[in-house]
Amino acid sequence: MQTRFHPFMPAAALAALALAGFPALGQQAQAPYRAPRTADGKPNLNGIWQAMNNANWDLEGHAAGMPAKEVVGILGAQFATPPDLGVVDGGSIPYLPAALQKRKDNFASRVKLDPEVKCYMPGVPRATYMPYPFQIVQSTQNVMFVYEYAGSVRVVNMAAPTKAPADSWMGWSNGKWDGESLVVDVTSQIEDTWFDRSGDYHSDALHVVERYTPRSPDTMMYEATIEDPKVFSRPWKISMPLYRHVEKNAQLMEFKCVEFAEEVLYGHLRKPGTDPYTSTNPNK
């Protein structure tokens, strides 16, 4: 907001304006948003959130693109890669030269290789920007992230950091507060997850640091710094807003996608002469 400097403005009024904290002429400043607090005094991130972009198709900015050859003749426009300005700081992901070829190979076979097709848990950060809601349940000792997709879940340890005994699909998360932001350090992710449907991938050396920063009552900024010296020449960052589901009685719904992936995974093992649509499985 600008204050016009009027030479005849009474000094008292000018002083009053200054005391009121209105910005001086020419400057626009905004105090950082301060989220309501939980009862134990921390920024309150509880709620149901969802990204509103097409990062899950391709993190980098891109125009709309053709569906994969395996499905273009059946799904047409429904499975085109929708356009997106991209969420990668600096525009492109800094692949090492050899790693970039693997990305290209992934893209060419993306429908066969994308773990999302098999209902595998998406890992971090992809779980954040899958096109489905997730819920944060926040207590003092733990912040639990529950993702609608495949019932993926992870608990962020807010006490002294601990180490993972082995790799896992959703990784091992240690968190802490940094002012208004929740900072989560994610290690020990299995190497088999992708960042998106276009074949962006990583190795078992992946290290992700996330920041969740409330920016208004119903939005949050999400940033993730991604580091993997086996695949990328330097750390790189994605950022995007997350939006709160404000509709009454919003809830996550059960999305157990395993059975939708079964023909892909096991169709070749069915008894000859049977098919899934007449398969009379009345039970279990």
Partner: peptide, 10 residues
Amino acid sequence: VQGPGYVAIM
């Protein structure tokens, strides 16, 4: 894990 208005059981 409990948050305001919710109880989560994993």
